[in-house]
């Protein structure tokens, strides 16, 4: 069960001499739900972009199933890993269904048309995310929550066993946020998918993920079971602020409550 999916070693990455990842090492275990938390600008987005080769870090190695990432073609990589980027106001000039069909790109060959498999994957993705009613809507007309759900559906349609999400629930209302985590839990448990989710919501990370990694100043400061993060002043050290914890009434995990300001 504890097979290593991503083996990241001594990864360094800079923008214009500004060091963003600083000899970072981390193992991501297969079929885990990992949350990556940490202060703004710590390098979380940069790290996940390295994992799908949007960035190609010059220093360090990333092994995916023991194979160096640069040895894997972009298409092959896309068959294994889907990515849900940070929510953007970009123009997406397609309907939800066209958008999901485009996610099948790694499975298409240039001279054959869309196969029954592709159609099935898209239908299933709509079903799992309960978004069938959105399939003919134009992406630009969707609300933030709906759009995010379609992005997750597209990640599912793409078909890989790994889904990497960058702040999937930031800016969403509590209902949409909950829906998103419910679906992530579901595909994690039922389909044994590996989920890597960057988030600022520490309580969600504690409640829904198996593991938490803290990324600060381009280094991994903490990696462990998600319920360990509330111990030993780890969060206090990470964010340089005081935290108050209470036991969640239904699951007995320690979670954060907001501070009272006098």
């Amino acid at each position: 069960m504890n097979e290593i999916l991503f083996d990241i070693k001594n990864l360094s990455f800079s923008f214009d001499k500004k060091k963003v990842l600083n000899s970072l090492s981390l193992n991501i275990t297969k079929a885990d739900f990992l949350s990556i938390i940490g202060p703004n600008g710590g390098g979380k987005t940069t790290l996940v972009k390295c994992l799908i080769r949007i960035y190609k870090p010059p220093i360090g190695t990333i092994l995916l199933n023991n194979i160096p990432l640069e040895k894997i073609s972009q298409k092959e990589l896309a068959k294994q890993i889907s990515y849900v980027p940070q929510i953007s106001e970009n123009n997406f000039p397609f309907t939800a269904k066209e958008f999901l069909m485009l996610a099948r790109y790694p499975h298409l060959s240039r001279f054959t048309s869309i196969s029954a498999n592709d159609k099935k994957a898209v239908t299933e993705a709509f079903d799992i995310t309960n978004t069938n009613h959105l399939s003919d809507r134009h992406m630009n007309t969707l609300s933030g929550g709906e759009k995010q759900m379609i992005f997750i559906a597209a990640a599912l349609a793409q078909g890989g066993d790994v889904i990497i999400l960058d702040e999937p629930a930031t800016f969403l209302d509590p209902k949409h946020e909950h829906d998103i985590y419910k679906i992530l839990r579901k595909i994690h448990l039922q389909k044994k998918k590996t989920i890597v989710s960057v988030t600022h919501n520490i309580n969600s990370a504690i409640l829904y993920s198996d593991k938490i990694a803290i990324l600060k100043n381009g280094e991994i400061d903490f990696y462990g079971n998600s319920d360990q993060v509330t111990k030993d002043g780890i969060l206090e050290k990470t964010y340089d602020k005081k935290f108050t914890f209470i036991k969640h009434p239904s699951c007995n995990k320690s979670i954060i409550v907001p501070e009272v300001i006098q």
Binding site: I52, R53, L77, K79, S82, F92, F94, Q158
Partner: peptide, 24 residues
């Protein structure tokens, strides 16, 4: 004409195109 699917993906933005398997 042969690259029209790739152009569709590029229209979504470069990061998404890469993550869907386009060798950008």
């Amino acid at each position: 004409i042969f690259l029209s699917t790739e152009l569709n993906l590029l229209a979504l933005g470069e990061d998404i195109a890469i993550s869907r398997g386009v060798s950008l």
